[in-house]
C-alpha cells in the first residue's frame, strides 16, 4: 500500500468513528502513546493539546446547557459526564420525621417521594453531615415542615362532584413545604431562597380529615449514594455527526436522501438537477434510514468526529447548568491533584 494512503487511512481511524449499516467501527481511540509501533503520533504534548482544546457554548438557559467540547479524549469527556451524574453534590431530603400521616401513602413511600424533590439551595454553602451525627446543625441541614389538613369546602356548590371543588387542601404540593431555618440560617439566606425548585410537584392527595404533619431534613450528598442527590436530570454527550456524500446525488434520489435524515440535515440545491448537499450534519439523530435504501446506501458515509463532543447538561434546578459544569470540573481537578499528591507521596516513601 502506498504510504500516503496508509497515512490517510490511519488519520481517518484516529479522527473518525464510522457508522456502518450493522456495526460501528473504529470506536476505540488510538490517541495514546505507542498505539502504533514506531509512531510518535499518540505521544502526549501539552502544547499541542492545549492548542486543540476548545469549548463552544451553543445554547445556555438556566436549567439547560449545550456546549461543544472539542479536542479532548473520550475519557475526559466521560469523566465530566460521570462526575456531573454522580459526584457533584446537592441538597436533598434525607430524613423525614413523621408526626402524623393519615393519608393513603405509606410513610416510607412518602419519604421516598419527598426525597426525590429537587431543593433550591446552594450546596456549596453546606457541609456534609457526619455519619455519627443524629441532629443537624445550621451548617449541614436545611429543614422543612409540611403540615396539611384536608377539609370539606363549605362554600362548594351543592352539585359539585370534583374533589378540587369539594375539598380544601386535597392536593399537597411542594409549595406547601415551609422552610424552617436552623440556627442562624434565617440571617444567612433571604426568605424564599431556600425552597423546592418547583412549587407545583404533587406530593400527596388527601381526603377530608386526613392530616400530614412532617418535618424533613435535607442534607448534602452525591448522586453515587442516591439518585436524588444527582444535580442533573441527565448529562450526556454525543459525537458530532459527519455525513459524506461519496457520489453526487441528484433528482428524486436527492429528495429521498433528504427524507432519510432529520429536518435540515440535507439541503437540495434547487438548480436544474436538484443536487443534494449536507447542510447541517449536527442535526442528524443517527436513524441510519439511508441504509435501508439500496440505491443510496453506497453513496453515503456516516461517521462521527471522535474528539468533538456535543455535551448537554440538564439541571434539576438547584444550581444553574453552567455552574454545575464548573463544579464538576472542580471535582475533576480535585481528583487529579489528589492522585498527584498520592503518587508523589508514594514516591517519597
Amino acid at each position: 500500500m502506498e504510504p500516503v494512503k496508509l497515512k490517510s487511512c490511519l488519520k481517518r481511524i484516529k479522527e473518525r468513528v464510522d457508522l456502518k449499516e450493522h456495526q460501528i467501527i473504529n470506536t476505540n481511540t488510538t490517541d495514546f502513546p505507542n498505539a502504533y509501533t514506531g509512531s510518535t503520533d499518540g505521544d502526549f504534548d501539552i502544547n499541542k493539546f492545549t492548542k486543540g482544546v476548545r469549548v463552544d457554548i451553543i445554547s445556555e438557559k438556566e436549567d439547560e446547557l449545550e456546549f461543544d467540547l472539542v479536542g479532548v479524549d473520550a475519557a475526559i469527556a466521560n469523566s465530566l459526564r460521570r462526575i456531573l451524574l454522580a459526584e457533584v453534590p446537592t441538597m436533598a431530603i434525607e430524613k423525614v420525621y413523621v408526626y402524623n400521616n393519615t393519608s393513603l401513602i405509606q410513610d416510607e413511600v412518602l419519604a421516598h417521594r419527598l426525597g426525590l424533590i429537587p431543593i433550591k439551595a446552594d450546596p456549596r454553602m453546606f457541609e456534609y453531615r457526619q455519619p455519627d451525627q443524629e441532629e443537624g446543625s445550621a451548617e449541614d441541614t436545611i429543614s422543612f415542615a409540611l403540615k396539611v389538613k384536608c377539609t370539606h369546602n363549605s362554600s362548594a356548590p351543592a352539585d359539585a362532584t370534583q374533589p378540587d371543588i369539594l375539598y380544601k387542601h386535597n392536593n399537597v404540593y411542594t409549595r406547601d413545604m415551609v422552610w424552617v431555618p436552623v440556627g442562624n440560617q434565617a440571617d444567612l439566606y433571604p426568605e424564599g431562597s431556600v425552597a423546592p425548585v418547583h412549587p407545583d410537584i404533587l406530593i400527596n392527595k388527601l381526603k377530608p380529615g386526613q392530616i400530614l404533619d412532617l418535618r424533613m431534613d435535607c442534607v448534602k450528598g452525591i448522586g453515587r449514594d442516591h439518585a436524588k442527590f444527582s444535580p442533573v436530570a441527565t448529562a450526556h454527550y454525543r459525537l458530532l455527526p459527519e455525513i459524506t456524500l461519496t457520489q453526487p446525488i441528484t433528482g428524486t434520489d436527492a429528495h429521498k436522501l433528504k427524507e432519510c435524515f432529520s429536518d435540515g440535515v440535507i439541503g437540495i440545491r434547487t438548480n436544474d438537477n436538484d443536487e443534494a448537499y449536507v447542510a447541517n450534519a449536527r442535526l442528524d439523530t443517527c436513524s441510519r434510514e439511508v441504509f435501508r435504501h439500496d440505491n443510496l446506501k453506497d453513496k453515503v458515509l456516516l461517521s462521527r468526529v471522535r474528539d468533538h463532543f456535543i455535551f448537554s447538561v440538564e439541571s434539576t434546578g438547584a444550581l444553574p447548568a453552567a455552574t454545575l459544569v464548573s463544579e464538576a470540573l472542580k471535582v475533576l481537578m480535585k481528583k487529579c491533584t489528589d492522585l498527584r499528591e498520592k503518587l508523589e507521596h508514594d514516591e517519597d516513601s
Partner: peptide, 15 residues
Amino acid sequence: DYLTSGVTGEALNAY
C-alpha cells in the same frame, strides 16, 4: 440505537 458506553465513554461496537 447508537449507544455510548458509560464506562469508557466510547461508542459501543454494535447498535
